[in-house]
Amino acid sequence: MSTAFPRALIVGASSGIGATLALKLAGTGAKVAAVARRQAELDALAAQSAGRVLPYAGDVLDYAATPALFDRIVDDLGGLDLFIYNAGVMPPVEESEYNFDKDRQMIEVNFLAAVQWSNLAAAHFEAARAGVLCGVSSVAGERGRRGSPVYTASKAGLTAYFEAMRNRLTRYGVRVVTIKPGPVETPMTAGLKLPLMITADQAANEIVSALEGGATEAFVPGIWRPIMFVVRNVPSFVFTKTNI
């Protein structure tokens, strides 16, 4: 079986979209390095993929360990064609709650660690004049929302960072892809009632299509693109009156 990405690395791959993506890419024939904290879940993916998913236990917040882990993975894979940053957290934040502990965790996992990992991959791809750098952001990054101020801020930051990476790296033959999923049924959204919810399997299929099809920005599913066009253009004085 031929694959567009013989050597892939997914950070945040033990469950949800990341795990499903890892299995799908492995199914196309790719060797997929999967990074997450939970060794048992990664081992299960390795078993399910007949060893094509390679488990690397690691915490994205262990900033000191990340460069060496990245180098080891690239060595083990014999290079890198595709990098996906998919790690993300969205702890429940109540109305009127201002919780710096949760805020810090979201900024660190969703944004700061994404920057560290993606910088490493970006430098590798820039030097190689090839590669696909992909970040899983969110439709939540399109506007600041009252229900999840820092989650939306972390995703807005991630979207802007990936846009900047695209502007920096396109000239070197590196494709930078921003994925903006709407709600997806994963452990992160368990128990939440959200509109237009899709399964992780559907989301992973659409992401693989976007990666293989040459996209640089993909709403998942595509219906979010026109919805977000409208939402982005709602004037602030109207937005303040909504419950979005």
Binding site: A64, P67, A68, N119, L120, A123, E126, A127
Partner: peptide, 10 residues
């Protein structure tokens, strides 16, 4: 910080 963890550049 260990030298190997210094900032990187192309």
């Amino acid at each position: 910080r260990p030298l190997a963890q210094s900032p990187r550049k192309v």
